[in-house]
Design a protein around this nucleic acid. Structure first.
Lengths: 227, 227, 227, 227
DNA sequence: ACTATCGGGACATCCCGTTTCT
DNA sequence: AGAAACGGGATGTCCCGATAGT
């Protein structure tokens, strides 16, 4: 999908026309450059922020980096997001969580059963992680963990995202009627995938993601033949 | 055990007479003050660092804060940890992961079966989270997610910790003989708990932790008579 | 008349939904809101600027704050005042100094003698200071002191205002014939009141203002029968 | 005493060895360079801050300028003054107000009577103002007026300074027994001089200072021959 | 006459690592 | 082992002025 550049290359290849060092985009990101430049400033900021939050979390990302990568000026950012970094992060997380929600919805409605859908979802997560040299985990989890209690709006945004995902999962699990408690099972699926994403990142190996997906769904498929 | 509210005291006392700023210990931490003061400098630094990493991650914690909370001076820190913040973090994560490993070991050996042990472990995690006003999740996950690729020693430390935990879990699951693939089941248990810890933090509700613990262990207890 | 406390609202609402920050009007000002909204843009800007200059001086006031409080946009401001902040300040100081001149004129012509007029003037200054929680001193002095040599037009505006006041004072003192050198006495009156306003602000006590007014005028009333 | 450089020369004479533009010391200051360099960092910061506050007030002075002029690093400043700009200002004002207090004390004890002492004091103020191209008024007044209510420690420092000066003035006036109410007369003297300093700055003419000094003291000398 | 953007520099603060001295 | 001081770069935020489009 995209390649990973060197990790935050502090050294600059002296390109002729660059006066000040322009930060090499350490994470080229999901949203790639060609489509980025076509976006209006506001969307560009959101997209870049989402990509960076996914990799280094709230505290780990600096607004300067966001500005560099999105080729925007400080003034523009504080015009569109008077609430600063926090507001930008909240909006980026909302944006990203909606994207994932749409992905889940799509997989749920195009798969023959819940188990297949979950396996497909796991596969997408795993491939995104691998393709990014094991940097891009879950934007929500990554942003949440180092936001600190003073940025409660970030936590709320994360929570809202998780709640939406859980509902989608639960609905399909309930529809398939594979377990007694669909809500608890949705929590298990999401928790296990989130945790596996972290394990995979630590081990630089996507195997945990596939493993948990298999472990969980192998118990399903029993009761309901689903539509 | 203690409450935590003050949001990183951005406002100093600013009274002209006060020579040095006194940082409100925003996170009193697992390691509490009275026992902290009895520790030698080196251990004090490690303990405080572990506590802070658990709450705000690698990027979110500053050495100044560590120094303030551990009542040590810069010089002392760079004497004990010439590698600076990164080395300190690695050592703190090693320390903390050993503590958790010991806890797992203890629970595993004192519980009648694996399911009970896992439930007890989940209960400990949940209560620690709640007691800290939903701040203290897993130090390893929190530190990993915002460390960034340039701090690979941090990732390695996290990985080592996870591997040790996995092995302990796998051993007991294998011993109880409750599932076909004990290694995969250990990964599921750890992943689900890590993920549930995050969900719980986002929702400010420990329920996901208990939920996943129940969901997973409810399938066990069947085959093995346990020792 | 009104109270003033909120310290420049350094914290934004930061709610993700709020698009634009709403600045808490830290200084509602002499010119109050209801009459402000009825004014055309240009006058609104001048009035708000004057109020702010009086409280925080030239360097202490930002155009953003002026814009927020006067509910105008940047474009409007630079249309009316192409010279920017400096021109706006000059005009605001001219406006305010005219108001004060009118007040002096009125008091001078309605009082039985110069001493009574000066006491009345001092009383007005003192009450304005007290009513604003000891924030609103003399706009001219406040703006002058932190304008810096690069904003000489500000100094000139201040000077012009002072000159007008001095002339009015001198005329009445001369008319009453209470001292040998009416010009010098006018300078004394104005200087003492300006200085007392500062002392009063520092001490949060209006007493110096009344004190100097009494000290000075107690020597008058002797020679002249007044008109 | 010293010369004034060009007013904040935004343009830089391209001296060979200067890499980044080094701010031309817009106000060479009371504390001149040669003696400044011999001072330890902490004192250097205080001295430079006092000089700058005197000219442009609290809001008008930036810490960068203080750092440049005092040739100190950011780290040093926040080491010595953890309370930042505000603490530095408070300390500078305390320092400067002590210097003036000593001057007053000296003049009071070496002059034949209070009137002579006040005239001498006025002469010093006037000459300092003139020598600085009408920039250096009273540091206390200048810093107070644009500090804003959020920096109350600055106001307190100013108040303390004024109170000390008033006491010294009152003591000598009482000793000479020239008026009925020495406390009120001290307030008059200080107020008039502070105000005259402002008028003189606005008019670029020291005359108001001498004028008020003469106006006030001409009524004295009557009753007491003093020691 | 006004809105909606943008640009880029300056602001106060805090960062992490080093050095020097005891 | 540790205290005191320093260096200089990075942080998030805010600044003032400009511009393009009505």
């Amino acid at each position: 999908m995209f390649a990973m550049a060197a990790p935050k290359s502090t050294e600059q290849t002296t390109s002729p026309e660059s006066e000040r060092p322009i930060r090499t985009p350490s994470v080229s990101a999901q949203t790639d450059r060609s489509m980025l430049d076509r976006l209006p400033t506001r969307e560009r900021l959101v997209a870049v922020t989402a990509d960076l939050l996914q990799v280094r979390g709230y505290a780990g990302v600096g607004v300067t980096e966001i500005l560099d990568l999105s080729r925007s000026a400080k003034g523009s950012m504080y015009f569109h997001f008077p609430g600063g970094k926090e507001q930008l992060a909240v909006e980026a997380l909302g944006d990203r969580s909606t994207q994932i929600a749409r992905l889940i919805e799509h997989l749920m409605s195009t798969s023959p059963d819940a188990a297949t859908a979950v396996a497909a979802f796991a596969a997408v997560l795993a491939s995104r992680l691998e393709d990014s040299d094991f940097q891009r985990g879950c934007a929500l989890a990554t942003a949440l963990l180092d936001a600190g209690p003073e940025h409660d709006t970030v936590r709320t945004a994360v929570r809202t995202g998780y709640d939406r995902w859980l509902e989608l999962l639960e609905r399909r699990i309930a529809h398939d009627d594979v377990v007694d408690d669909p809500a608890a099972e949705a929590v298990l699926v999401l928790s296990a995938l989130e945790g596996a994403l972290i394990l995979a990142r630590a081990q630089r190996d996507p195997q945990p993601i596939h493993s948990v997906s298999r472990s969980i769904t192998s118990r399903w498929r029993r009761r309901a033949p689903s539509e």
